[in-house]
Simulated scan of single mutants.
Amino acid sequence: MDKQAILNRVDHTLLTTTATWEQVKSLCDEGLKYHTASVCIPPRFVKRAGDYVGNDLKICTVIGFPNGYNSTETKVFETEDAIRGGADEIDMVISLGLVKAGDWDGVLAEIKAVKASCRGRILKVIVEACQLTREEKVKVCQIVTLAGADFIKTSTGFSTGGATVEDVALFRANIGPDVRIKAAGGIRTFEQAQAMLDAGADRIGASALVGLMEA
Rank of each mutant, 00 (worst) to 15 (best):
R84F: 12
G85H: 13
G86P: 13
G86R: 08
G86E: 09
A87M: 11
A87Y: 11
D88Q: 06
D88S: 08
E89H: 05
E89T: 08
I90Y: 13
I90V: 14
I90T: 14
I90E: 13
D91H: 06
M92L: 09
M92A: 04
V93R: 04
V93P: 04
I94M: 09
I94H: 09
S95R: 11
G97D: 11
G97A: 14
G97L: 08
G97W: 06
G97H: 12
G97N: 12
L98W: 02
L98F: 03
L98H: 04
V99I: 14
V99L: 03
K100S: 10
A101W: 03
A101F: 07
G102E: 10
G102I: 06
G102P: 08
W104R: 01
D105W: 03
D105R: 09
G106H: 05
G106S: 10
G106N: 10
A109W: 01
E110G: 02
K112Q: 06
K112Y: 00
K112I: 00
A113N: 02
A113D: 02
V114T: 06
K115W: 01
A116W: 01
A116E: 14
A116T: 09
S117V: 03
S117R: 05
S117H: 06
S117Y: 04
S117W: 04
C118V: 13
R119V: 14
R119Y: 15
R119L: 15
R119G: 04
G120Y: 14
G120V: 11
R121K: 15
R121L: 15
R121F: 15
I122V: 15
L123H: 07
K124R: 14
K124N: 11
V125M: 14
V125I: 15
I126Q: 15
I126Y: 15
V127K: 03
V127R: 01
V127G: 05
E128K: 12
A129H: 13
A129G: 10
A129M: 10
A129T: 13
A129L: 10
A129Y: 12
C130K: 07
Q131H: 14
Q131C: 15
L132K: 05
L132W: 06
T133I: 10
R134D: 12
R134T: 14
R134I: 12
R134C: 07
R134H: 12
V140T: 10
V140N: 05
C141Q: 01
C141S: 08
C141M: 03
C141N: 03
Q142C: 03
I143F: 02
I143S: 00
V144G: 02
V144W: 00
V144N: 00
V144I: 02
T145Y: 08
L146M: 09
L146P: 01
A147Y: 00
A147M: 00
A147R: 00
G148S: 09
G148T: 05
D150R: 03
F151V: 04
F151Q: 02
I152H: 00
I152C: 01
K153Q: 07
K153N: 06
K153V: 03
T154D: 06
T154R: 06
S155L: 08
S155Q: 10
T156W: 13
T156E: 13
G157W: 09
G157Y: 11
G157E: 08
G157S: 09
G157H: 08
F158I: 05
S159M: 12
S159N: 12
S159A: 12
G162Q: 04
G162T: 05
G162L: 07
A163V: 07
A163E: 08
A163N: 07
A163W: 10
A163G: 11
T164N: 14
V165N: 03
V165S: 05
V165Q: 07
